[in-house]
Simulated assay, not measured.
Amino acid sequence: MKRGTEKGEISYKCWNIRDYSKNKHRKVDDYPYGGGAGMVMTVDPIVSCYNHIKEAVFKKPKVIYLTPKGEKFTNEMAVELSKEDDLVLLCGHYEGIDQRAIDMIVDKEVSIGDYVLTGGELPALVLIDSISRHVKGVLGDDDSLDEESFSDGLLEYPHYTRPAEYEGLKVPEVLLSGNHKHINEYRKTESLKLTLERRPDILDISKLSKEDIKILEKLKNIDKQSK
């Protein structure tokens, strides 16, 4: 991300919502209507901050609210969001933010997982890192994106480097063979195997080639026989 910033491919700016509070103590939360535990972030400072940002960029930016109630963040979503000119990541706190702020300015609600954090700052950093990597020029080698986990709907195959043997553990012979056809077959098989074992929920048969499906069926048969 440092390289991307230095090259002018991406830039970041933080706004403190407290700076837009009309309260003399810069308060931005209040008790929830209807009762209940915790506090809720008030609508006016959030909308006022958003209006300031909108004036600064001379257009309506896409606003993402980080919340456990949102759509789960995926690599596919990161790719799509990387095409946006401007993104505003709204970080909630306490029990969340006044629903009217969501109705007025939020375009998309996003969650980074099925758990709760104290605030939206860490999820925002996750989105910044993941999305930035898909902006051309940010990575030193843009081609590396093509072989990462989730880029083709599969988990990435295992990697090895020198030495060829360490404490009796050897690098698979096929990777030392120089036969790129066999190496590609090995890597595809390992990707399918790992995805089948660890994340069968992301396997999309419609996106697999006929050869991939043959490998997958073979792996499933092996798994059945081992049981």
Score class of each variant (00 low, 15 high):
Y94Q: 06
S177C: 03
L139S: 11
K220A: 01
D114L: 05
H134N: 15
P61V: 13
E76P: 01
L196N: 01
G36H: 03
E55P: 00
Y20A: 14
E9L: 12
H182A: 15
E167M: 15
K207R: 14
N23C: 10
M41Y: 12
R18I: 06
V116Q: 04
E165C: 14
V174P: 08
H134Q: 12
E55L: 12
I205G: 00
Y50D: 03
E197W: 01
V135A: 11
S11L: 09
Y186A: 12
S21I: 10
H182F: 04
K224D: 08
S226K: 12
D85Y: 00
K218V: 05
I112S: 07
A164S: 06
D204E: 05
S177P: 00
K218L: 12
E165R: 15
H180K: 14
S132F: 15
L90A: 13
C49M: 13
P68G: 10
E76Y: 09
L87R: 06
A124L: 09
K224Q: 09
K83D: 02
E71Q: 11
K22W: 03
K27N: 11
E84P: 02
I46N: 01
Y50M: 10
I10C: 04
G4W: 05
V43D: 03
I213D: 00
V106H: 00
D107E: 02
L145M: 13
D146W: 01
V135R: 15
S206K: 02
L89K: 10
S130L: 05
P172N: 10
E80F: 05
G153R: 02
K220M: 02
D212G: 01
P32G: 09
D19E: 14
L81E: 05
D44W: 04
E147P: 06
D152V: 13
A124N: 04
L203N: 01
K210S: 08
Q99V: 08
I205T: 01
V138I: 06
K2N: 04
Y12N: 04
E109G: 12
T42K: 14
M77R: 01
G8Q: 10
I222A: 13
N184C: 06
K193M: 15
S149C: 12
L219N: 06
I202F: 03
L155F: 00
R187F: 02
F150D: 09
I112M: 08
G153V: 04
I128L: 14
K60S: 07
